[in-house]
């Protein structure tokens, strides 16, 4: 698909800053680094589990910068009472992974 990513550039900047603050190794964050950040949202663990499933697009157990932005996007939307989707909407797939 072609079209703008649902993560807006200004939001991406914010998420990138959080990503960098978590000291990624080789441009990746492991689950144990991401988990406390997501838990901080106070969302139910089953919801956060779904957020992880949707954002770890290549299923390598780590999030790169774009995957992390997807995770944060879903968490922020969930905090605004938008349901976390069961499958990742195509427009939420980072352009680098389409």
């Amino acid at each position: 698909i072609d079209g703008p990513w649902m993560v807006k550039p200004e939001e991406k900047l914010k998420f990138d800053a959080i990503f960098d603050s978590l000291t990624p190794v080789g441009g990746m964050l492991t689950g144990d680094k991401v988990k406390p950040v997501l838990l901080n949202s106070k969302l139910p663990v089953d919801v956060l589990g779904r957020v992880w499933e949707l954002s770890d697009i290549d299923r390598d157990g780590m999030l790169d910068k774009d995957e992390f932005a997807v995770a944060m996007y879903l968490v922020y939307r969930a905090l605004e009472n938008e349901p976390v989707p069961m499958i990742l909407p195509p427009a939420l797939v980072p352009p680098s992974k389409r």
């Binding site: 689950g31 144990d32 988990k35 779904r50 992880w52 499933e53 770890d56 299923r59 157990g61």
Partner: peptide
């Protein structure tokens, strides 16, 4: 629950 193929790499499982 989780989408089919839910992975053991999920730190929330």
């Amino acid at each position: 629950q989780y989408p089919a193929g839910g992975s053991s790499t999920n730190p929330f499982l």
